[in-house]
Simulated scan of single mutants.
Amino acid sequence: MAPTTNARRRLRRAGSSRRWMTAALIGAVALTAGCSSRTADSPAATADSGTLTLVDQRGETIALDGPAAKVAFTVMPAPSIFAAVDRSYDRIVGINQSTLVANQGGMFATMFPASAESPVVAGSDFVPNVETLVGLDPDVVVQWGDRGPDVTRPIEDAGFPLVGLEYGTQEDLETWIALFAQIAGKPERGEQLVEWQRAEQTAMRDKVAAQSDPRPRAMILSRTGDTYSTTSASGYDGFQFDLVGADLVTKGFVSDSGQVSPEQILTWDPEVIMLSGFDQSTPADIYADPRLATVSAVQNKRVYKTPLGGYRWQVPSAESPLMWQWMHQVLYPGERTGELRENIRVAFDDLFAYDISEDEIDQVLRLDLNEDATNYDQFLR
């Protein structure tokens, strides 16, 4: 069944260009007093024909008749980033199954009730459900652009325009923000969010450079049943652990599945363990595992469940600066009660147009799961 054409504003492919969106869209932008310096001939400029053009991470140049009214996301955490750009969920019509789980389990459904019932357009393999897409009839579908034709071709064969993304670096995150701002018709908003991310990176680097304490050994850990897995230092965690002043113990670790044995964790002996938000593991589970009893983080009660805000904070998102602050305070605890809470309050208002309550901040910070962790009382209200 082919998608209808009269209900959807068509995106037209305008050829191919191998320019990076970050360099063309963000790097040449200077924000002064909240004003944009975007030039008329940038990749996101409005042409005389009334179209908006953008360059995705495949290097494809795409033209849009105007800001998209309906956007489907087969990938995560893209919807929460788009919602932060738009300060709304109104344009999002389809999401990944994993995103739906995160929405229903955290703050996102509270802020945007419709997100708890969004149609699912792809699962964990990111293969699109074309029949569902046809029924939703989005103006554009956002998909991984570097995972082969199995995930992109069905969308394009069905006649839907596709914006392809790549994942793994802070530069990728900034590119997503810029792309989503163009899709929403809000380029200046994208510039502001990127500038915030960059300013927070600079502030964090300055803070870490001024420290005299030894860098803690740390890791991200996932648990499913009795099986553990972790992340490689070559990915986003390598960037953000270094940014906040920690030595990621998984440096040099190579595994297609990410699985890691308890014996390897014992050898690494992390001083701090941060638990993934993609599973149901808790600090209590880790403390109760006799195989990890002699790990420093277990003995010193320094195992922490990562926060869940608009999305899981551990991965690149619009909320990443909040994750960096949380990580740094967990690694280097001090008398800073209330600092992160106030920053969450301000950020949620700016990102999601939402006035978050004290109880909801407790929920984001997983105070119920982390209450017994060393120095977690610094996050109390």
Rank of each mutant, 00 (worst) to 15 (best):
M1C: 01
M1P: 02
A2I: 04
A2Q: 06
P3W: 09
N6A: 12
R8L: 00
R8G: 02
R10A: 10
L11N: 09
R12F: 02
R13Q: 06
S16Y: 13
R18H: 07
R18A: 10
M21N: 13
T22N: 06
A30G: 07
L31K: 04
S37K: 12
A40L: 12
P43Y: 05
T46P: 01
D48T: 11
A63K: 10
D65P: 04
D65A: 15
G66R: 15
P67M: 11
A68T: 07
V75M: 09
A78K: 06
A78D: 15
P79Q: 10
I81P: 00
I81D: 05
V85Y: 05
V85N: 08
D90C: 01
R91S: 14
R91L: 00
I92T: 12
I92W: 01
I92C: 04
V93D: 06
V93T: 13
T99R: 01
L100R: 11
Q104N: 13
G106Y: 03
F112W: 07
S115N: 06
S124D: 08
D125R: 09
F126Q: 10
P128S: 09
P128R: 12
V130L: 03
V130N: 09
E131W: 01
E131L: 00
V134N: 12
V134S: 03
G135L: 03
L136S: 06
V140R: 09
V140T: 07
V142H: 05
W144M: 03
I155R: 15
E156Y: 09
F160G: 08
F160C: 06
L162S: 11
L165Y: 09
Y167E: 12
G168R: 06
E171F: 00
E171K: 01
L173G: 10
W176H: 15
Q182D: 13
E188D: 12
E188W: 00
Q197E: 06
A199G: 06
T202I: 07
V208A: 15
S212Q: 15
D213G: 07
M219S: 03
L221N: 13
T224A: 05
G225Y: 02
T227P: 02
T230N: 02
D237Q: 12
F241K: 05
V244C: 07
G245N: 11
A246V: 03
D247C: 00
T250W: 08
G252C: 00
F253I: 08
V254W: 03
V254T: 12
S255G: 08
G258L: 03
S261H: 10
S261N: 07
E263D: 10
Q264K: 14
W268C: 09
G277V: 01
Q280D: 15
T282Y: 04
D285Y: 09
D285V: 07
A288C: 08
N300C: 02
K301C: 00
R302K: 14
Y304E: 10
L308V: 04
Y311A: 07
W313Q: 13
A318Q: 14
S320H: 15
L322V: 00
Q329Y: 12
Y332K: 13
G334D: 12
L340W: 13
R341M: 08
R341G: 13
V346L: 14
A347S: 15
D349V: 03
Y354A: 12
I361Q: 08
I361P: 01
D362E: 13
D368T: 12
A373L: 10
Q378V: 11
R381I: 00
